[in-house]
């Protein structure tokens, strides 16, 4: 690991000051950053610890939503009673990721900004447009089984690995940040960028941003939510494909729906095409299938990951069936 200096600012203002230096990396739980420093992908000169800035509270908002501090550990998000009650999909998504140990360490801010697990990105002896702009993307024709079928470009098909962010995307969460210029709120919808020609620029975060919290608006009345993840092993593996679904059915028809896909795109993928087809439609399996098929028309599978198209279709239908079933039971009881 390259030498660096460790700094622990005493408050947010000082942390924001320090973050303005291009040689600084902010440290959360370290579960991604320390790993990437060990393998030479990240080489900061200064490491600024953000875990003791008092950003570790979960608060109820006046509208019935929640504000989750950036340093709250993933475990504490998943086991918070308010999260479990109001946003079961978020608790489930967090618990579907990593291991008990890692969730005890990982923070909310770090989880949002974790980097891709693409093997070429992690191997400094290989070309990678994300790590070294202009060097090429061997994944296009190489080992692309785990990589994107939606939203990729000829320059990069890396996937975003977070489970948590997929649930937050379905819940219309926003990210609260602070920079030298002040505080700002960025909807998660505008937070991540597609790779296009610049896969090295992954977010629309202003330069030197400190993430301070995430806001989740009040749950939609009567809606059910759930997370389904498929991976190579039963536990402790990244998603090959996952879906966060939110659904409300009224009189047999879809009254509200939100679908976000994980493991298939460079960012948590909100399935807007499918949602538009579902709104007002009968909450029936053939409609669910038709809607996700329409979404997946845009898929550009690579030789090794064509299976993800089928997988994504099946888990979306499954989650919608489950949620529609739960809604019917709820009405009956």
């Amino acid at each position: 690991m390259r030498k660096f200096e460790y700094l622990r600012p005493e408050d947010r203002a000082r942390a924001v000051d320090l973050a303005a230096n291009p040689d600084v990396k902010l440290l959360g739980g370290g579960t991604n950053l320390i790993d990437l420093m060990k393998i030479g992908v990240e080489t900061p000169e200064f490491l600024v610890d953000t875990t003791r800035l008092g950003l570790d509270e979960i608060e109820s908002r006046a509208d019935g939503g929640l504000r989750i501090g950036a340093s709250v550990r993933n475990t504490d998000v998943a086991s918070d009673d308010r999260v479990r009650e109001r946003f079961p999909v978020l608790s489930a998504a967090v618990l579907a990721g990593a291991s008990g140990q890692l969730r005890n360490m990982a923070t909310v801010g770090g989880n949002l900004l974790q980097r891709t697990r693409c093997a070429y990105f992690q191997d400094v002896t290989k070309a990678c447009n994300k790590r070294k702009p202009g060097s090429g993307c061997p994944a296009q024709t190489g080992a692309n089984r785990e990589l994107a079928i939606l939203g990729g470009s000829e320059h990069c098909i890396a996937t975003h690995p977070s489970d948590m962010a997929v649930a937050l995307r379905a819940l219309d969460a926003s990210v609260l940040i602070e920079t030298e210029k002040g505080a700002e709120t960025i909807p998660l919808a505008d937070f991540y960028r597609l790779p296009g020609e610049r896969p090295d620029i992954e977010t629309n975060l202003p330069y030197g941003s400190l993430i301070v919290a995430i806001d989740i608006p009040a749950p939609r009345n009567g809606a059910r939510s759930s997370y389904v993840k498929v991976r190579d092993r039963a536990s402790f593996g990244f998603a090959l494909a996952s879906v966060a679904g939110v659904l409300r059915v009224a009189d047999g028809r879809v009254a509200e729906v939100a679908l976000a896909l994980g493991g298939v795109a460079p960012l948590p993928w909100r399935a807007r095409v499918a949602e538009a087809q579902l709104m007002g439609a009968p909450a029936e399996p053939d409609r669910f299938r038709a809607a996700i098929d329409a979404e997946l028309e845009a898929a550009q599978p690579r030789p090794e990951n064509a299976f993800k198209v089928t997988l994504a279709r099946r888990i979306v239908v499954r989650v919608l069936n489950e949620l529609a079933g739960a809604t019917r039971e709820g009405e009956a009881s």
Partner: peptide, 29 residues
């Protein structure tokens, strides 16, 4: 593994299990 992938380094930090290979000693002050 030294990368959080195997759990062989698990210890308890303030009562919670963590992968000690990914915790900098300075940050555990």
């Amino acid at each position: 593994c030294d990368r959080g992938q195997c759990g062989a380094c698990t210890v308890l930090r303030d009562g919670r299990r963590v992968n000690s290979c990914l915790v900098l000693a300075v940050s555990a002050d």
